[in-house]
Amino acid sequence: MAKQKSKMAKAKLSDEAREAKERVEAHPMAVPFLWLGRKSVQDNFIFLPLIGLIITIVLGLVFPPEHEAPWDFFASWAVIGFCAYSAVVFSAEPLFKLLARDENYYGEGSDNG
């Protein structure tokens, strides 16, 4: 427990140190938003859509779809969204294995970067 706490404190410290360094280099308009780069923010980002999703699913009970598709129920689009998204992402690995080639495959050189 204590160990974890110290780890967190360490992470926070390093975040602060990093941000202090970044503050110098960053665009002035970006300075107030540098916290976006923190690992904790990125890790906890998941709660934003989660809460939004819960709210909208509840609202889905209040506003039922006017024109129903056969599969529609109060949370149908949430299910579609989650499944479709996951399907796309999980298809990436096999597709990449199947279709990816060396960048200079066509022998025309890489166009940028």
Partner: peptide, 16 residues
């Protein structure tokens, strides 16, 4: 609005 948001939030959730 609600169902569109469901779709988008669910997609974001899946991403996260």
């Amino acid at each position: 609005v609600v169902f569109q948001l469901q779709l988008l939030f669910a997609a974001m959730l899946a991403f996260a």
